[in-house]
């Protein structure tokens, strides 16, 4: 088992930096390139969510991302020091609704739930922690 961490201020402009961090981890661990994008999507959705909800507390949050390879899969943890918020309590969007009635938005967390094998939320002290795992097919 191996792991890595990156910490950035909660500004959406830092997203490319986090994506590079994930891609570097992927390369260093020699993971199959085609399976990186699900994690890139999950990282973006959760990071943007942390920044958006975190800024409601009036101060800028810090976001820490941890990646590890374990048990035939990758575990990604995204932690922020913003006000308590569990995005998994958001109602799922109606993905079958016709185009003209489709609300613009509400899809991010749905994508994360569908693209990861497991997603869990924990409030740990003053931090929100989302932990995601997905199996890597050899």
């Amino acid at each position: 088992m191996s792991g890595r961490h990156a910490t950035v201020p909660g500004e959406v402009a830092r997203l490319p930096e986090l994506t590079r961090f994930l891609q570097d981890f992927w390369t260093a661990e020699r993971l199959p390139a085609a399976q990186a994008s699900a994690f890139e999507v999950a990282l973006e959705e959760i990071f943007v969510n942390s920044v958006t909800h975190g800024s409601r507390g009036g101060t800028r949050v810090r976001v820490e991302v941890s990646l590890a390879v374990a048990d035939g899969g990758v575990t990604m943890t995204v932690e922020d020091d913003g006000p308590q918020f569990d995005p998994l309590t958001l109602p799922p969007p109606d993905v079958d609704c016709p185009l003209e009635q489709r609300p613009v938005g509400g899809l991010g967390i749905h994508l994360v739930r569908r693209m990861m094998d497991t997603v869990s939320y924990q409030r740990v002290g003053a931090h929100n922690r989302l932990r995601m795992t997905r199996r890597i097919e050899p």
Partner: peptide, 19 residues
């Protein structure tokens, strides 16, 4: 190479405008 929900939103806005 890549799209997230933010990208889907723009395509959805464009699709609705076209419709």
């Amino acid at each position: 190479q890549y799209i997230s929900s933010a990208g889907l939103r723009v395509l959805l806005v464009a699709a609705k405008a076209a419709q």
